[in-house]
């Protein structure tokens, strides 16, 4: 594999964010009946989301 590699701290931070998304969506599912709008969860997409987010600059919109 070529290109920049993630160091341990970056990997840990990526994993932390993936877990946070999964936990958040789990909590939303648990409280589904209290939420007034249509809900679409991103369970299973954690890796692609965090990978994409870490690949862009903070100023990218």
């Amino acid at each position: 594999m070529k290109g920049p590699r993630m160091d341990d701290e970056q990997r840990l931070e990526a994993y932390r964010r993936m877990v946070r998304i999964r936990e958040f969506e789990g909590a939303i599912l648990e409280h589904r009946s209290e939420i007034p709008s249509v809900v679409h969860l991103s369970v299973g997409m954690e890796g692609s989301i965090v990978g994409a987010c870490l690949a862009v600059r903070a100023t990218t919109t």
Binding site: I21, F24, E25, H40, S42, I49
Partner: peptide
């Protein structure tokens, strides 16, 4: 960064806070 109607993940993936997201969903 944009979601595809599955909009909760990206802000968390960006490192955002979850409190205001919860409030939004409610």
């Amino acid at each position: 960064m944009t979601g595809t109607h599955r909009s909760h993940g990206p802000p968390i993936g960006e490192g955002g806070e979850v409190d205001q997201l919860c409030a939004e969903l409610l």
